[in-house]
């Protein structure tokens, strides 16, 4: 398999996952806003923090209103982490790798892109948000399902899976980070809304029901952190994503050094005591974790995508 093709399908996996997660994020933020009284409402700026898009937003005209931020995250082409940008990149990567993917996948991705592109320069009014965003999440899942159900589980498939899981792990850390730092800022320990906020963190990762089933205890900080970082059964937990990454790597040629990086990170995550990490310490930990995920990406790139001329 050509390295370039491997790299493109890897990024296809990443961008599809990014589009899906971003849609989930807006959706949950939108739902949470409906549950909470105005004084404890977290700022919409938080959405930009999670996506690391504050600077890009500040560069464009327009105040940080709910309407502007949603448009920016949904359909702004100047914002590299908007849904439209992710889908554009996913589609571009797919265009040149169509030969090796099931043809229905291209049709799904293309029609999803077109449906979002048509809306991209309009506002997303409250009444439409659920339908539009949910359609994005569902279409992305459909693509994942199509690939799982109709594609040879060969090297190309493993690269898509690597991209998807690495992106998922990264996004999970971002959501937890923003939640624990920003979200809690204006709600004190005893507030009755605190629980609601942790629930919304779980929800933004589609983790609430699975948490209940798996953890069997009330929703609290320690329980949520352990579940989202360390669970090996919940697909959006960081540890689970790393486990998936390792299993994909083992199916690829020349994987020794890349696998070592991923396995090292998973072991370190497993041995971390999250109840001991409070406030700033947690933030520092997550920062480092994100850099370590970048290390995993670099190991993949060096191992399979980049070649020095002989």
């Amino acid at each position: 398999m050509l390295s370039r093709v491997a790299e493109r399908v890897y990024w296809l996996g990443r961008f599809m996952e990014r589009a899906e997660n971003t849609a989930r994020l807006i959706l949950v933020r939108h739902n949470a806003a409906l549950d909470l009284p105005r004084e404890v409402q977290p700022s919409w700026m938080l959405l930009l923090q999670v996506l690391g898009a504050e600077e890009a937003f500040a560069r464009l005209p327009g105040a940080a209103t709910e309407k502007n931020i949603i448009s920016f995250v949904f359909g702004e082409k100047e914002n590299p982490s908007s849904i439209i940008s992710s889908l554009t990149c996913a589609r571009e990567n797919m265009r040149t790798t169509r030969e090796i993917l099931p043809s229905e996948t291209w049709e799904r991705v293309n029609s999803l892109y077109l449906s979002v592109a048509r809306r991209s320069n309009k506002d997303l009014p409250q009444g439409m948000r659920h339908a539009v965003l949910n359609n994005i999440v569902q279409s992305c899942q459909q693509v994942t399902g199509l690939l799982a159900g109709s594609m040879n589980q060969d090297a190309a498939y493993q690269f898509i899976r690597l991209g998807r899981n690495l992106e998922r792990a990264d996004m999970s850390t971002r959501i937890i980070d923003a939640a624990s730092a920003g979200l809690m800022g204006n709600v004190d320990e005893t507030s009755p809304f605190r629980n609601v906020l942790w629930i919304s963190v779980l929800q933004s990762l589609s983790a609430y029901q699975m948490y209940r089933l798996n953890v069997r205890r009330s929703v609290d900080r320690e329980g949520v952190l352990a579940f989202l970082f360390q669970s090996t059964v919940f697909p959006r937990a960081v540890a689970h994503s790393l486990q998936q990454i390792e299993s994909s790597m083992k199916l690829l040629p020349e994987h020794k050094s890349t696998l070592a990086v991923a396995a090292g990170l998973r072991r370190q995550l497993r041995d971390t005591d999250f109840s001991a990490l409070e406030g700033e310490a947690l933030h520092t930990y997550i920062d480092r974790l994100q850099l370590q995920l970048v290390d995993v990406h670099n190991a993949i790139a060096v191992g399979w995508f980049a070649h020095e001329s002989s």
């Binding site: 398999m1 050509l2 370039r4 030969e99 090297a155 040629p253 020349e254 070649h307 001329s309 002989s310």
Partner: peptide, 29 residues
């Protein structure tokens, strides 16, 4: 696709110091 050949772009190929042409694959050159 019909010939079962790789579709390459210029950047996928590299000419070694032995003046032979190689393509960059996930298994190496």
């Amino acid at each position: 696709q019909r010939m079962g050949a790789e579709l390459v772009e210029g950047a996928d190929l590299v000419v070694g110091s032995d003046d032979k042409v190689y393509m960059k694959t996930i298994r190496g050159l």
